[in-house]
């Protein structure tokens, strides 16, 4: 659930085109250290709440996935997640999918998880997709 993030569906129209060879050049600097790093508690929180829909490995195949009309977000896919800012992901978790114009099957977790925990979950999603916001 946590994330059906930003919606429960993968919108093919939003897929980024494959990068050109020059764009794939290893000139990209490493991302700066995050203010809210991923801890063991972050991973446990993801497993406890988010894995119900997004799966234990973040591939979007949790136990609810096949029962939802819109599939949960695959957190390992950079194509979509790099088009979203950290603030966008934070709002999606805190206030639910509708708050960011996405599918309503992603509930709001703002009364369950504190801001620091949500920030660390955003960091964890970045770790899963191995991507940063463009």
């Amino acid at each position: 659930m946590m994330a059906i993030l930003i919606g429960c569906g993968q919108d093919p129209a939003e897929k980024k085109p494959s990068p050109s060879p020059s764009a794939a050049a290893p000139s990209t600097p490493s991302p700066a250290p995050r203010a809210h790093p991923v801890t063991q508690e972050t991973r446990e929180t993801y497993q406890f709440y988010c894995a119900q829909c997004h799966g234990t490995d973040g591939h979007g195949k949790g136990i609810n996935a096949s029962h939802l009309t819109v599939p949960p977000r695959d957190h390992t896919k950079a194509d979509y997640l790099e088009t979203r800012t950290d603030e966008h992901l934070f709002t999606a978790i805190q206030q639910g999918g509708l708050a960011v114009g996405r599918a309503p099957c992603m509930p709001s977790w703002g009364h369950t998880l504190d801001d620091n925990t949500i920030h660390s979950l955003v960091s964890y999603i970045r770790e899963l997709c191995q991507c940063e916001a463009l």
Binding site: M1, I4, Q52, C53, G62, I63, N64, H67, L68, G96, G97, L98, P104, C105, M106, P107, S108
Partner: peptide, 24 residues
């Protein structure tokens, strides 16, 4: 279903009285 997302985890009836929804 929409505002509180309960349907993502709980089975309930749709308007056609068919069960639908998550199973966690």
């Amino acid at each position: 279903e929409r505002d509180y997302s309960c349907i993502a985890c709980h089975q309930s009836y749709n308007l056609a009285r068919q069960p639908r929804g998550g199973v966690s």
